[in-house]
Simulated assay, not measured.
Amino acid sequence: MAATPRSPAPRPLTPVSRVLRLCLHALVFGLLALAAGRAVTDSAPRAGWVVAACAVVAAVYAAGVRTPAVHRSPRAAAVWLAGLGAAWTALLVVSPDGLWIAFPLYFLELHLLRLRWGITAVAVTACAAIGGFVAHADGGAVSPGAFLGPLLGGAVAVATVLGYQALYRESERRRELIEELIATRAELAAAERDAGILAERERLAREIHDTLAQGLSSIQLLLRAAERSLPQDAPALEHIGRARGAAQENLAEARRFVRALTPPDLEHGSLAAALERLCAAAPGPRVRFCLSGAPRVLPTPYEVALLRIAQSALANVVRHARADRAEITLTFMDASVTLDVVDDGTGFDPSSAPSGEGGFGLPAMRSRAETLGGLFTVESSPGQGAAVAVTLPLPLEASR
């Protein structure tokens, strides 16, 4: 039977800084030196064994510190801590001063092992320290401090490490939040820049269409009327014909400018095709597009206004309505064109919707419709979905 692959063990949660590591190393070696020095200066019966045990603990500790795998792998750290614990137990057997090493061991176990195993190792280490102290009492009275000291030391170590981990996680969350805010600000600036560019393109397209193109069309009509009113052999006919040709060329150039300034969504097809692509690409609810009536070629400002209103209304459905279905309907009638955006979402009270961004962009949609002489309406109530409708009167050339 094949063994189940194990997921890689996570790295320790609390990366100790270089200064704290140096302090921990200094504490371990200092306590070992103190234990060995006391055994020699006090002429303890087993002073040689104490010095040897201290040397073994120091060697095992130094080997683990110099081994990169101990800091990367919890398994390697567990093996090293087991060896270090065995050497420390030997020191504890020959000298009660080995009890001092228990406190730095607590921090090592909590730092290198997973929290559950780290706390278990701290409990075992505290019990071993208490047992060693009691064994060296030689039947004498044992004070409560022999029990409270290792237990309180372990509790302090656990509380310190847990507090550090909580602070570290909070710091990481703040760092991620700051990075997300910076990225969002950059995206917002780019979106505002793009929106400004598109708005300026739309404004220029409207201005060219409503002023220059219309003026050239009027000039051409006047020249045609003048041409018809003159006799066939009038010398001015040649100049009128040239003027008509120049007006026609400039009108075509103006229309090319308008097409070049058209939003990208309208560059490669009609308004109906752009709306159909908008519905297909919408995330969240299922959006259907319906076309009613015989499609006509609309002036660019009309197409831009209807497309922008549809985009804004559908964005509201996706972000706020929590709807399952939505429908966009474009209806061509004899003298008008109507756009309806309907959803089955939570709905809202239009009379209480605030202006600006909090009003879901309704003022901007209304302004677009009214600029072209249209009518903008919103029908909704809480729990009953929403319907947005805009009706634009068709210009004479588009209604024919």
Rank of each mutant, 00 (worst) to 15 (best):
M1H: 14
P10K: 15
T14V: 00
P15S: 04
C23G: 11
D42G: 12
P45H: 07
R46S: 02
C54P: 02
A69P: 01
A78W: 11
V93T: 13
V94C: 07
H111L: 11
L112N: 05
A126C: 12
A126Y: 10
A137I: 09
V142E: 00
S143E: 11
A159N: 01
A166L: 13
Y168T: 07
S171M: 04
E179Y: 09
E180T: 13
I182L: 06
A186T: 12
A189I: 05
A189V: 00
L198M: 13
R203L: 06
R203I: 00
L204E: 05
I208L: 15
T211L: 09
Q214K: 12
P231I: 06
E238H: 14
R244M: 08
V258M: 09
H268M: 04
S270V: 11
R277N: 10
A281R: 15
G284C: 04
F289D: 00
R296T: 04
V304E: 13
V317T: 14
V317M: 07
V317I: 09
A323R: 11
M333L: 06
D334A: 15
D334I: 07
D343Q: 12
G359H: 01
A369I: 06
G374K: 11
T377D: 01
S380F: 04
G385Y: 03
A387Y: 01
A387L: 13
V388Y: 03
P395F: 12
E397G: 05
